[in-house]
Amino acid sequence: MATWDDVARLALALPEATEDPSHAATRSWRVRDKAFAWERPLRRADVAELGDAAPSGPVLAVRVPDIGARAALVADSPSVYFATAHFAGYPAVLVWLDEIGVDELAEVLDEAWACRAPRRLVAEHRAGR
């Protein structure tokens, strides 16, 4: 089970990552002013759409390379990853923090960061591992 403290620690460990409030005053993690992860409380429409499958705990949204990557995550781990109609056609997936381990969260955040960071910065980061 991951926490917001884990999200912040892991996200801010990535090169040039910052934490800024989003337009809704929720937490958002960015690289060069491009959001790669953000707090995404479920809205009434989300809860109505998801029904009994709606998570009751904290939800994180993260960028993914494309819609296919999102579909693969949801298919592989539907208890951790999900999407709502609000995200149709948008390369992001929702993550139920109560169900994701910290190691997997680190991987997801790294991939989300790489979706938004400049290619050269990603190459430098991955070469330094």
Rank of each mutant, 00 (worst) to 15 (best):
V64F: 06
R63N: 08
L50H: 03
R40T: 09
A54D: 06
G57K: 10
P65T: 13
D66V: 02
D46L: 05
V47N: 09
R43P: 02
R43V: 07
A37Q: 02
P58G: 05
V59M: 02
L50S: 02
D52I: 06
R40N: 12
G57N: 09
E39L: 03
V64W: 04
E49L: 03
P58K: 10
D66W: 08
A45M: 09
A37F: 07
D52A: 14
W38K: 02
D52S: 15
P65H: 10
L50C: 03
W38D: 02
L50R: 03
E49N: 13
D52V: 12
E39C: 03
R40D: 06
L60H: 00
E49Q: 11
G51S: 10
A61Q: 02
L50D: 01
P65V: 13
G57T: 14
P65S: 09
R44N: 15
S56W: 08
D52Y: 01
A45G: 05
R63Q: 12
V62H: 01
S56P: 01
D52C: 00
V59D: 00
L42C: 09
P58C: 01
P58M: 01
D46T: 03
G57M: 08
S56Y: 08
D66C: 09
R44V: 14
L50V: 07
G51V: 09
A54K: 11
S56K: 13
A61C: 11
D46K: 06
V59H: 04
A61S: 14
G51C: 06
R63A: 13
V64P: 07
R44G: 15
A54N: 04
E39V: 10
V59I: 11
R44L: 14
A37W: 03
P65E: 15
A48C: 06
P55W: 06
A53H: 13
A37C: 04
R44C: 05
L60I: 08
V47E: 14
A37P: 07
R43W: 10
A54V: 08
G51Y: 06
L60Q: 00
E39D: 12
G57L: 11
W38H: 07
L60W: 00
W38N: 01
E49G: 13
A48L: 12
L42S: 04
G51W: 12
